[in-house]
Amino acid sequence: MIWFWGSVGFWLAAWAFNAWLARQKVARGRAVRLFIPALFGVTLLILWEGVVRGLKVPGVILPAPTQIWAAIGGSLPMLWGDFVQTILKGALSGYVMGCGAAVVTAIIIDRSPFLQRGLLPVGNFVAALPVVGIAPILVMWFGFDWHSKAAVVVVMVFFPVLVNTVAGLADTDRMQRDQMATWSASYGQSLLKLRLPAAMPFIFNGLKIATTLALIGAIVAEFFGSPVRGMGFRISTAVGQLSLDLVWAEIAVAALAGSAFYGLVAGIERAVTFWHPSQRGR
């Protein structure tokens, strides 16, 4: 029981400290703003560990963080293989193809208001659908290997990026377009120099939504059939063998990969759209 009450006590103490810290003037600083959520996260881990040890929760229901860490350390090569199979081959290739196709499609239909008025409601509709459901069909068409996962990802990311890009290309005001016209800029010039840069915040919004969708698509598609590696495959088989520490290890890798992927896209966004009000004054 000492573990249980110790961790609860630590949690209360840390919470009181955070509450005190949040009221201080230093809470405006950047370091403290990072420290408070970090402390909160550490407290959760310690509470988790304490509850599991104190209440003797069996490992097949909830493994402790230390056990998960041991599982990560003990199966690094396997985790790396799954990461390459699912994230690099499945999710990333599909992401690049799907987003590229969406941006190109948006630019093509940009010249035709008719197509835009027809495609946008359809695109908005499809973006709200449970597109993961298409996974079994695509697995049937493209086989068990990463190609079918990439195909699922392409379908999942296409419409959010398309809708955002079309909205972005429309986001220039009359004065700016008139200015391009007075310089007698061609369609291509005004697209490249004015409208595409102006659309970048919207495009990146779509790209950021698509990062999570890509990982979800690649992992869930593996539930419908995959070669004997990959994160979705590992999760579903490890659950079947009740080795939950391995499942949590895969989830930790997925969380890490997801955050890193998102962070990468957000970093590129900051470099590309440095002029946008939401990026200034940081």
């Binding site: 955070n18 509450a19 703003r33 959520p37 994160m231 997925a254």
Partner: peptide, 23 residues
């Protein structure tokens, strides 16, 4: 609650980048 804002909010935002469906 300011303490809750500072501790929970970053995690709530970060959790959106995680493929939660895997669990």
């Amino acid at each position: 609650n300011r303490a809750m804002d500072l501790s929970v909010m970053p995690w709530a935002i970060a959790s959106q980048t995680i493929p939660i469906l895997a669990i």
